[in-house]
Design a protein around this nucleic acid. Structure first.
Lengths: 216, 216
DNA sequence: AGATCAAATATCCTATAGGATTGTCGGACC
DNA sequence: GGTCCGACAATCCTATAGGATATTTGATCT
């Protein structure tokens, strides 16, 4: 008989088709398989995913509440348009409010096990892999701050950063890796003030790199 | 014939039943007609509101994405439980990050017309009326900061503050009115630093008043 | 060519019925 | 008395059909 113990894996509770569909559509939006400002019809998803309308509608409603799609009455759903300059400004103003504080708190209270999972992304083989590692990097720090509201808000925002970056096929910059390493060093040293400053610098530089892509 | 011109009212675009149902359920949660941690079944809403399942499911999905209800597979929806001490701490930590900054920016850029609508709530006849005026007060300032992300995040948080306060029938304190008036004065004077400090003080005092209700 | 109007299409919204799954309650058994 | 088991109820999920409304398209007219 197998040696694995059933106790070490918590019971799997199927969370419903709506959740699955939600994740699927979200992944499609993030991978640009559904580009910004493109139609998303319920019927086509029914045919493509082979599930009924109900879970698709629920998934689209959740995506709408999270700002990834928008609905127009009797006209169907559409993915949100790409961020313009004003929205980019607002997003980074918000990140500057939250993430430096999160970095400070993470330096003070983050678990050592989570800290070991921090990766700067210098070993990323592709653009997509780097984007995923960047998302995970910021997610771990936000989670390390020990405030669910901070982690959730940042997750929402990072989705849009991810889409924006993917639209412009932005290069994997050495700069970003260096800035990540600076943050990691400050966190490992449990130096809250330095982590906060490093994170602020990272976001400001990141904003400068992304801002160049739009002039309007 | 009527003297009103049809041009001055923008075309009414019915936004769908799901939106209406969403607002209705949200209002019921805010008014404690649906207390925290109570079941909310789709069928009973069908009977009560007289609409089909589809818009109700969509409304509940949106409410779930906004954290007001939670779903368990094959077990129905339920309103989120009341905040505990840890969540209250997290919420006010978050507000302290956002709202003082919003007050500073509002002092610098808020429209005079919006500023005229600021009310401290000293004339509120009831507890519910004060709660609504308080929500509107903070909403106007967040909107005055000119950042939609700030306004939306604060709106989400204020819902939970509202519910928490309603649960304990907290008194209308003179203190809160005074603090509101201090903020209004700083905003009218276009003094960003003073508005920021007044807002920070208001939130800290507000936290102290609410914290006393829970010991666990 | 450009604008105007009507038909066609696509989509949302409703309504109803039935199968599948979970939680609960009461009784049988040790 | 405590524990196990089966029926019941509640709920979610699916499926299908049809009506209502906005968008699009194409033809007609100036």
């Amino acid at each position: 008989m197998p040696a694995v113990n059933d106790m070490d894996r918590p019971i799997v509770r199927p969370s419903g088709l709506a959740e699955e569909v939600y994740r699927r559509i979200r992944a499609d939006i993030l991978s640009l398989r559904l580009p910004p400002d493109s139609r998303v019809s319920v019927d086509s998803l029914v045919r493509e995913l082979g599930v009924s309308q109900t879970p698709i509608r629920e998934a689209l409603s959740m995506l709408e509440a999270n700002g990834l799609v928008s609905k127009r009455h009797f006209a169907g759903y559409a993915t949100s348009p790409r961020m313009d300059r004003a929205q980019l400004d607002e997003l980074f103003e918000f990140r500057l409010l939250i993430e430096p504080h999160a970095a400070r708190k993470a330096a003070e209270g983050m678990a050592d096990s989570d800290m070991g999972r921090l990766a700067s992304g210098e070993s990323a083989p592709s653009h997509d892999a780097f984007a995923d590692m960047d998302t995970e990097f910021h997610r771990l720090i936000a989670q390390g701050a020990g405030n669910h509201l901070i982690a959730d808000s940042l997750a929402r925002l990072h989705i849009h950063v991810h889409i924006f970056r993917s639209c412009f096929r932005s290069e994997i910059t050495e700069e970003a890796v260096h800035e990540h390493n600076a943050i990691i060093a400050a966190l490992r040293a449990r130096d809250g003030a330095r982590a906060e400053a490093a994170m602020r610098r990272h976001i400001e530089r990141s904003y400068g790199r992304l801002r160049d892509f739009i002039k309007d």
